[in-house]
């Protein structure tokens, strides 16, 4: 269930070579996140809660909207949401999970 976390270090389908020769501006975390839009992600908050769902939208504060999301605490499903807005200030990380 937690297999998604291993893949969060590298971008979706990306390899280290993909960025070679590109301007530094295209290698920012924001650039990575833009590529993750519409994909299933796991968002962990500072309090340890995890949210899994489809990444609909996000901004520079890391405010995040997820679609068809589920809340996990200690790996246990707590609740399901349709659309949910997560406040950026609580976000620890955003990682991709395989489809």
């Amino acid at each position: 269930m937690l297999s998604g976390e291993q893949s969060s270090a590298s971008g979706p389908g990306s390899t280290a070579g993909e960025y070679e020769g590109q301007a530094p501006a295209t290698r920012t975390p924001t650039h990575f996140l833009r590529k993750v839009l519409g994909r299933p992600v796991v968002v962990k908050l500072n309090n340890g809660t995890e949210y899994r769902g489809t990444l609909v939208c996000l901004d520079g504060y890391l405010n995040i909207v997820l679609e068809n999301s589920a809340e996990f605490l200690n790996g246990e499903l707590k609740r399901r949401y349709g659309d949910t807005l997560l406040r950026g200030s609580n976000v620890l990380y955003v990682g991709t999970i395989p489809d």
């Binding site: 939208c57 909207v65 679609e67």
Partner: peptide
């Protein structure tokens, strides 16, 4: 009832 992706300019718009 879900919002289609790309419909939101920014998260707070939800």
């Amino acid at each position: 009832f879900t919002v289609g992706k790309g419909q939101l300019e920014e998260p707070v718009e939800l």
